[in-house]
Simulated assay, not measured.
Amino acid sequence: MPLNETMNPNLPNQMEPMDVDVPFIKSDNQPNIDELCEKFDKLNIKNRFPWIVLTLMETAIALLIFFLLLFIVVMMSLYEYVYKKGQEIISIKLKLIEILHGNISIPLPKVTTEMALHEIKQLSYLSCEITMNFFTNMVNNIQNKFKMVNPIYFKKKCAYSNFSVDQNDIQILFIYPDKTQKNIGHYIAIYYNADTKIVDIYDSCVEMYTDDQKRDIKRELKEEILDRMYPNNKYAVWKRPKSLQKDDYSCGVFAIAYALLLFQGKKPENDEIPFLAFDTFYLRQFLGKMFEENKLLPLKYLI
């Protein structure tokens, strides 16, 4: 039977929508929309927080790597500079060993002002091959009255052909006061008076010696060096300088200072060396200034 035949014509159209009021029942467990939005925002921040931390960590690591690479580059450049300077000094020292053993008799390599300044300003020993080499060459280039010889050459007989007994002379010598310690050398300054034929010895450690040590040092010094330098010398005499060293490494600085006083016509036993109120720091600074200016400056306080 057709569908239309079953429908009651007196009833309203059953296919049309019907307006029905359904009451809204609010549950206590139903979330509020504002609360949902707030929770969503918090959740979004929490999700983004690890990304922020990761970005900061990546930046910090990148900066760390950058500064590490920069440090490596700087250290490599510094190492290259120090290595080159070290090789220069080693080359000179090897040349010195050859000279000491008599294998070669050529002049010592030329020492730069920079090398001499570096050594003279350090609170340590001075070497024949660097500072003394530079000082003696500077003196000989500046004036002609005195002919200085590098202390290292007094170990060779050929050095003694350069001296004249008819004129005054100033030299710095390198000796070994303690025969039991051949590796510990010592610088002294000497002055030869051509009129009196007497050699004055200026030693910054003179008060540290016993009378027996003074006698032995002077005898050996006269027999091995002084009699070869000045064959007609009468004798050598110890002089007590007014300024003496108080440490165990500044003999070379004092020997240079004594020589400078003698160049000026003064006597170390009568004239004090300035700058020595505390240590040799200022004296070394003065000698460095003299090396830089390439002049035999008078010993006086720097202003």
Rank of each mutant, 00 (worst) to 15 (best):
H186P: 11
G86K: 02
K214W: 01
S250W: 07
K179V: 07
F291I: 00
P151A: 00
P274N: 03
C128S: 08
I130W: 00
M57Q: 15
A277P: 13
I120S: 02
E58S: 13
H118V: 06
I175R: 03
G102K: 15
A116R: 00
R240C: 08
C158L: 13
I152A: 11
N44R: 14
G86A: 11
L296H: 03
P50Q: 07
E98N: 11
K239D: 04
F163V: 06
V111G: 03
K95T: 12
M1L: 08
K110C: 05
M75V: 03
M115P: 01
E119V: 01
K42G: 11
T113H: 01
N4Q: 12
D19M: 04
N233C: 10
A259G: 10
A194C: 10
A159S: 14
Y301I: 09
K239Q: 13
E58P: 10
I92M: 08
L296P: 10
K246A: 15
R228E: 15
M132Q: 04
D200T: 12
R240H: 14
M1A: 05
K234L: 12
M15F: 13
K267C: 15
S27G: 11
S164K: 03
F286T: 01
M1Y: 14
Y249G: 06
S204A: 14
E224F: 08
D166S: 10
D169C: 06
L299I: 02
M208G: 13
S161A: 15
T180L: 13
E98T: 12
C205F: 13
F263R: 09
M57K: 10
Y81R: 02
F24S: 11
L117N: 04
S243E: 05
F40C: 04
G102D: 13
V165H: 14
K234N: 08
A194P: 07
K42N: 10
V139Q: 02
N140C: 01
L126P: 12
P241Q: 04
K197W: 03
L36H: 04
L283C: 05
F134L: 01
E58H: 14
I175V: 15
L43S: 09
D247M: 10
A194E: 04
Q264A: 11
L63K: 04
Q143F: 05
K179G: 11
Y81G: 00
M138K: 06
E114G: 02
N133I: 03
R215G: 01
L54P: 07
I65S: 08
T131S: 06
F154M: 00
L70E: 06
L43Q: 09
K267T: 14
K242Q: 09
V165D: 10
K110W: 07
